[in-house]
């Protein structure tokens, strides 16, 4: 999909997000929610972002949408640094990047009618007159597969799937180029989930959208994504195209994730690679490689040094001491390989 465009749509460069944790004085700890995350997304592409809850996937998504300010690092969109944009330019950029939240129950105002909810982004950006905005609302309802009678309804009258359609429609009202989908189907039942996934695929084709698809469901991510980035404890541990990642995962954590996907095939259970140990506390991320406390291949160096990001062929990177740093790759090229 990305073959026709050489310029990346959005680049996250060395993003950090740090929060103040609990404690006082010298005992006060920092929470490193996101640690040195670099991602490149090409126009029209879907990049899946997977990881356990609390690994920093949503924080990364929120920084990309400028809902959170990174502690360090920058984000460029079509080559422009987002943090440097002011005034009208900043507003235009906000229209181009939209966010769909996980929980449509919590992200839609219950006092608004559906028409009000969908019109609000247009009103805020002062687009069109009242009649024009209403026309756009009706057109959008049709696009997402609801008839115009829904315009007068309230959120509580809708089912979970319909609410998520409204959440998506609201993000689409400003004709964005880039959507951040944060667990858009996690709150839905399987039969409804497939309706929403189909809708997202259709919309992507119709409007040429680019997606950052955040999810913990590995089957859903496989279905939706062109490439997948895996996060663990705030760090990216592996990026690969979807087939490569699912068929030959490099990082031990990715291997464990892929082998833990529940399967309807009997007997797969016995081949499973079970991890031991618990997910470390975000306040005390282990020294060295964050995964070393659960890794079956742990070595001494893993406990001491944070592994570097290593290029593993075209558009594939892994952060693990098991893989030798390729002599031919200097740091600059590694960064390219990240994308």
């Amino acid at each position: 999909m990305s073959k026709h465009h050489d310029e990346p749509l959005i680049e996250l460069n060395g993003l950090f997000k740090t929060y103040d944790g609990a404690g006082f004085g010298a005992a006060k700890k920092k929470v490193h929610a996101v640690h040195d995350v670099s991602l490149t997304i090409m126009p029209g592409e879907t990049l899946g972002l997977v990881g356990e809850s609390g690994c920093g996937k949503s924080t990364t998504g929120r920084m990309a949408a400028r809902l959170l300010q990174p502690s360090a690092g920058n984000i460029t969109y079509r080559g422009r640094d987002l943090s440097l944009l002011r005034g009208r330019e900043s507003k235009t950029m906000r229209k181009a990047i939209q966010y769909v939240f996980q929980d449509p129950y919590a992200s839609l105002n219950p006092k608004f009618t559906i028409a009000d909810l969908l019109e609000e982004p247009l009103r805020i950006h002062k687009l069109g007159d009242k009649a024009e905005r209403r026309r756009q609302v009706d057109a959008m309802l049709e696009t997402i597969g609801l008839n115009s009678s829904y315009a007068r309804r309230y959120v509580h009258e809708l089912s979970g799937g319909q609410r998520q359609r409204i959440g998506i429609a609201r993000a689409l009202m400003l004709k964005p180029e880039f959507l951040i989908l944060d667990e858009p189907v996690s709150a839905l039942d399987v039969s409804v989930q497939s309706q929403i996934l189909n809708l997202l695929k259709d919309l992507q084709k119709q409007y040429g959208l680019t997606y950052l698809f955040i999810s913990h469901d590995l089957n859903v991510v496989h279905y939706m994504s062109d490439r997948v980035a895996v996060m663990y404890m705030g760090k990216l541990v592996e990026i690969a195209d979807v087939e490569g990642l699912y068929h030959a995962p490099f990082h031990p954590y990715t291997q464990a994730l892929i082998s833990a996907i529940p399967s309807e095939q009997r007997g797969k259970r016995s081949e499973r690679r079970l991890l031991t140990g618990e997910i470390p506390d975000a306040l005390s991320i282990p020294e060295g490689c964050s995964f070393h406390t659960r890794c079956p291949y742990v070595r001494d160096s893993c406990r001491r040094e944070t592994p570097p990001i290593i290029g593993m062929g075209e558009s594939r990177t892994v952060r693990c001491h098991l893989y030798p740093v390729d002599e031919g790759l200097d740091y600059g090229e590694t960064k390219v390989a990240l994308g």
Partner: peptide, 22 residues
């Protein structure tokens, strides 16, 4: 319908089956 609507690796690129209605 339930089994058909689960996204699985072999369904990549195909349209997912969705049970209509609620």
């Amino acid at each position: 319908g339930l089994m058909k609507s689960i996204p699985k690796p072999e369904k990549k690129g195909m349209r997912l089956y969705a049970i209509p209605g609620t």
